[in-house]
């Protein structure tokens, strides 16, 4: 049984254009995937492709427009009240910006204790303190005592992000959704925070949806990679498969432009011109066809679904059939 199974999930926003016409932003437009216990799935794609919206919809912080999210086999898109609160304990989110997600007036101890209070966990103040200390230490803030009374401005960027992680961990979630958790951090500190997340996965079997636009980081950290384009997953597979044998022309382009720290490996870049198109106006047929360097006329007419390349690797491209 998968920990989470997402089926044909949609999240559309309607915007009033001011001219009486209603525009629909199709931010998430038919996403399906599964995640096992203790597995890390990286979600990569350009700015605006719908990564954060997908995360918020999974957490039920945005209401799904259509589709299902089965968490431990229960559909969470319809949850309310106590059941929803329990879900919010089991799925935790870590955001990009450690400077914004911490209350500057609270001490580290109070910040990490807060979620326990919200969920009515821990029998006494001292029981909660023990849980807080354990979470801080699991997040790599050792010894925990020396951090309890500090405030966010007294911490470095990497330490702040670890406090955010500790506040998520203290509830012992089975799924952590991390939205660009390291992109604000310097490389030297990034490796350290990734190490903390890696330990969570290995020692606590926490599953993770790791949102990033940095395929390099995804490569080191994820078990599988999902590539998203304009509200859809266009390729999904095991990390090494996707990196070494990308199938979708979009994945190929994306991989070709990730800077590699090796001057001997200056490769040919497939540079897509223009900006990513707008989720208000999704092209017909394959949604990538207007930017696709290898599109054929049929691509503008025919929608494409994900097709298996092998048991663990899928991509949504018409041309796959021609080559296979």
């Amino acid at each position: 049984m998968s920990l989470i199974r997402v089926q044909n999930l949609h999240k559309h926003f309607s915007l009033s254009s001011g001219l009486g016409k209603n525009l629909v932003v199709k931010a998430v437009d038919g996403v399906s995937f599964e995640l096992e216990k203790g597995e890390v799935l990286a979600l990569v794609g350009e700015s605006g492709c719908g990564k954060s919206t997908l995360a918020l919809t999974l957490m039920h912080l945005e209401e799904a427009s259509a589709g299902q999210v089965l968490f431990n086999d229960n559909d969470i898109t319809t949850l309310k009240g106590k059941a929803l609160k329990n879900l919010r304990r089991d799925i935790q989110m870590v955001f990009q910006d450690p400077y914004e997600s911490l209350n500057p007036l609270m001490t580290v101890g109070a910040i990490v204790e807060e979620p326990l209070k919200v969920h009515g966990l821990g029998k006494s103040k001292s029981a909660r303190q023990e849980m807080v200390k354990k979470a801080l230490e699991d997040a790599g803030l050792n010894p925990a005592e020396s951090y309890l009374n500090r405030r966010p401005h007294e911490l470095s960027g990497g330490q702040r992000q670890r406090v955010v992680i500790a506040a998520a961990l203290v509830l012992e979630p089975s799924l952590v959704i991390a939205d660009e958790p390291v992109s604000m951090l310097d490389v030297s500190i990034r490796a350290e925070v990734l190490g903390v997340l890696e330990r969570l996965k290995l020692e606590h079997s926490v599953a993770m949806l790791f949102i990033t636009h940095d395929l390099g980081t995804a490569a080191h950290f994820a078990d599988r990679i999902a590539v998203m384009y304009l509200g859809r997953i266009v390729e999904l597979g095991e990390t090494q498969d996707v990196l070494e044998n990308p199938q979708h022309p979009y994945t190929k382009a994306l991989l070709s432009v990730i800077p590699v720290p090796n001057p001997k490996l200056r490769r040919k870049h497939i540079i897509l011109q223009g900006d990513p198109p707008n989720p208000i106006n999704i092209p017909g047929g394959c949604r990538f066809h207007p930017r696709c360097p290898v599109a054929i006329p049929t691509c503008s007419k025919q929608e494409v679904a994900l097709k298996h390349i092998n048991i663990n690797h899928k991509a949504a491209c018409l041309l796959l059939d021609h080559s296979a």
């Binding site: 030297s188 490796a191 190490g195 490569a219 990390t239 090796n262």
Partner: peptide, 16 residues
């Protein structure tokens, strides 16, 4: 050593 390289996904990133 701390910088990710997607062409070498198996190497471990070492923080400073």
């Amino acid at each position: 050593g701390a910088f990710p390289d997607h062409t070498k996904p198996k190497t471990q990133l070492l923080s400073i």
